[in-house]
Design a binder for these strands. Structure first.
Lengths: 344, 344
DNA sequence: TTGTAAGCGTTATCAA
DNA sequence: TTGATAACGCTTACAA
């Protein structure tokens, strides 16, 4: 055991003051004479003293730490969310413990318990179980038993109202996208992947239906294929399903970016060209949309904006003001190479 | 609703014992009669008591937290690393604070200071500044001033020997890959992207040179183009460079996966088919290799293995045993659709 | 303006 | 076996 740990007492002794004075200097609280302040700062600088936030946390009752729960950061969508949120958090002096649930359908991968133990001030939960109306029992119980001290923000839907929900609203962007493609002569559309039980998926399906109905597209030409997958394999499967039915739509929309990658893959395998034969649109609009060939038109929100909204909520709440239980961040349609006019 | 202002004193009172006994029960330390132990556990269960790890940390002098520094988790390579390391960490009761340096070339994005403040037990630093022989001054200074208490593990190269380096060794896999493609009739190769100043890049270049020399490929046909980029744009640029020189090689190898995505993109734009006209190989071998079209042959390590090696190092060191300063994890060549025999 | 001392929630060292 | 009690490093009344 090395007693390498410098404490404010060491600094105090060396500066010829009391620990309280050092603390006051560091936190700019209370009165300290210019002379002593200067001396203390000098010693702190010289000894490269960094206060122990664990000790501070114990007394301040805050850890300056955020816990973020995501299904899988390898998914570009969650990675983008994390990067934006971490950057915003840093500005406020917070660090982010990232918890990758991976295969655990419920939140109970032990992560929640660990975050509570660690006294995180805020938990941000994106995607996964909160996208379902019926949270599994474990999730519900854990959410319920979350200490009041911890502020919970989710991208989805959770029972109760002690938390805040910041959702992405795709409806306008979906309408804009469909109107645009209609204008390019497309008359047969498909929305592929996901499962209806997931609320964001269901919302997308509703917007899809509504916009196409308004364009007088007959029901047979507004195809929705859901399976319970959100990865490329799900997208590939959907395309094969379409292929078997014959009469391929000229617009294929993937429920998220991973699904859309699968759609593109399977179309290519079938010898269909994008965008010459089929126009493709995805969701999420992450950096991946720029990376694939052809670049992918996509609907998604500005992740920095999302993070800022979350940040604002925390600020407003900290000021004791009232915060809406649900806030929406509107997504936008970004046109890229994967779309073109329908063949005559 | 239960407040988590619950302390072991509350539990102690309710169980009719002292706080010390509760602590002993929770940590399985010291003697506690079966009867009292049962009673205490019952109350803990009933009140859903979760101990305050901040307070534990103060006395135990450990935070059970790992800080992980990466340039950008949106890069599938770093995401894969994180996921593997976080999973391994969880098993040991650790959480991971993920720090995304993004544009900060040095480590001094304030992240290091925050991690020290938070008393993290371990810092794992992957990619970025430690890949360069000449760390910038700020990085060096910060590494030097890291408290001895904090164990530093890096994927790269850092001055001093108070830390551990776990590197990826690509040499065998590169040789295997080149021999394989040579066997398929390829005689003209290029390694594209990155910068020689980065040690891993330089190592790859050396292995590339050596293996091709052994195959008696003339110098003119073992092309290395370096630029200072590691993203798709760097890859695109390299392909354009090759194109201008005329006489396109039949094997293009990207220095990392992002670069390789750019290579594929630009080749497609030039009307060259993969793998019919050009075989392509990448590094990193993340899930992205399976996602792109065609699927990408790639050289990379098993991320879970990497994480396990890191974990072992920590274990061995904790047992007070001697640990090698540098450990290597060998990467493997995984063949996928992007390679085929050279045209006659 | 400064210092003393009492916590914050745990664990560990003593006696009992 | 158990329970006081003293740390851990810091902040903050309260005194001085």
């Amino acid at each position: 055991m090395e007693k390498n740990t410098l404490t404010i007492y060491d600094i105090a002794k060396e500066a010829g003051v009391s620990a309280a004075t050092v603390s006051r200097v560091m936190n700019d609280s209370g009165y300290v004479s210019l002379e002593k302040r200067k001396k203390v700062l000098e010693i702190i600088e010289k000894r490269k003293f960094i206060p122990n936030q664990i000790a501070q946390g114990l007394i301040n009752k805050q850890s300056k730490t955020i816990g973020m729960l995501v299904p899988d950061v390898r998914n570009p969508y969650f990675a983008s969310m994390f990067v934006a949120i971490e950057e915003e958090a840093m500005k406020e002096g917070y660090n982010v413990i990232l918890c990758n649930s991976v295969n655990n359908k419920d939140l109970n991968s032990g992560h929640l318990d660990m975050l509570i133990k660690k006294q995180v001030d805020i938990i941000i939960q994106v995607g996964g179980p909160s996208d379902y109306a019926e949270s599994d029992e474990t999730t519900t119980r854990l959410i319920d038993s979350l200490p009041d001290r911890i502020l919970l923000v989710t991208s989805g839907y959770l029972k109760g109202n002690k938390h805040y929900e910041v959702r992405i609203d795709d409806s306008d962007a979906i309408e804009e996208m469909l109107n645009y493609l209609y204008g390019l002569g497309h008359r047969r559309f498909a929305l592929l992947g996901g499962e209806k039980k997931a609320i964001p998926t269901h919302e997308k399906q509703k917007s899809f239906e509504k916009a196409l109905k308004n364009l007088s597209i007959p029901k047979a030409d507004r195809i929705i294929i859901a399976n319970n997958e959100y990865n490329q394999y799900g997208g590939m499967k959907c395309v094969r399903d379409l292929q078997q039915k014959g009469d391929m739509p000229t617009v294929l929309i993937g429920i998220n970016e991973m699904t859309t990658v699968g759609i593109i893959k399977e179309l290519t395998k079938l010898g269909l060209r994008i965008p010459e034969d089929v126009s493709v649109v995805g969701f999420d609009n992450t950096y991946l949309a720029e990376m694939i060939t052809p670049t992918l038109s996509s609907i998604g929100c500005d992740y920095n904006e999302y993070a800022k909204v979350v940040n604002q909520i925390l600020h407003i709440r900290n000021e004791g003001k009232n915060v809406e239980h649900v806030t929406y961040v509107k997504s936008k349609f970004v046109l890229r190479e994967s779309c073109m006019a329908a063949k005559k």
